[in-house]
Measured scan of single mutants.
Amino acid sequence: LQAFIKTLTGKTFTVEMEPSDTIENLKAKIQDKEGIPPDQQRLIFAGKQLEDGRTLSDYNIQKESTLHLVL
């Protein structure tokens, strides 16, 4: 599935991932794409901060969901 990552500066980019991917995997993909170390990334979806060990499906993240990236 493709999801949108929106930063506080208003920049939006897309990442490809599977519902079974962990938040940790997602942070690694963001690092590959944007060069931001995972330990500096905080991802917010539906008002909740996402925990590394959980999966996208745990948070009911669907295709074309928008996640907010806070540094």
Rank of each mutant, 00 (worst) to 15 (best):
2 Q>F: 13
2 Q>D: 05
3 A>I: 15
3 A>S: 03
4 F>A: 06
4 F>C: 09
6 K>C: 11
7 T>Q: 05
7 T>D: 06
10 G>I: 03
10 G>M: 03
10 G>R: 04
11 K>N: 07
11 K>L: 09
12 T>N: 06
12 T>R: 07
13 F>P: 00
13 F>M: 04
14 T>R: 08
14 T>F: 10
16 E>P: 09
17 M>F: 15
17 M>D: 00
17 M>T: 07
18 E>Q: 13
19 P>N: 08
20 S>N: 13
22 T>F: 06
23 I>F: 02
23 I>H: 01
23 I>R: 02
24 E>T: 08
24 E>G: 14
25 N>L: 13
25 N>Y: 12
25 N>P: 01
26 L>N: 00
26 L>I: 08
26 L>W: 00
27 K>T: 01
27 K>I: 02
28 A>F: 12
29 K>T: 05
30 I>V: 05
31 Q>W: 15
31 Q>M: 13
31 Q>D: 04
32 D>W: 09
33 K>I: 15
34 E>H: 11
35 G>T: 02
35 G>L: 03
36 I>C: 04
36 I>W: 14
36 I>G: 02
37 P>N: 06
37 P>R: 08
37 P>G: 04
38 P>K: 15
38 P>M: 15
39 D>M: 09
39 D>W: 14
39 D>P: 06
41 Q>I: 12
41 Q>L: 05
42 R>S: 09
43 L>I: 12
43 L>R: 00
44 I>F: 15
44 I>R: 05
44 I>N: 05
45 F>G: 02
45 F>I: 05
46 A>R: 14
46 A>V: 05
47 G>P: 00
48 K>H: 10
51 E>K: 07
55 T>H: 06
55 T>L: 11
55 T>V: 08
55 T>K: 12
55 T>N: 05
56 L>W: 06
56 L>C: 03
56 L>F: 08
56 L>V: 13
58 D>S: 14
58 D>L: 02
59 Y>S: 02
60 N>S: 07
60 N>V: 07
61 I>E: 04
62 Q>W: 09
62 Q>P: 12
62 Q>F: 11
64 E>S: 12
65 S>F: 14
65 S>L: 09
66 T>F: 09
66 T>K: 07
66 T>G: 05
67 L>M: 09
67 L>E: 01
67 L>T: 02
68 H>E: 12
68 H>T: 13
69 L>M: 07
69 L>K: 00
69 L>W: 01
70 V>F: 14
70 V>P: 00
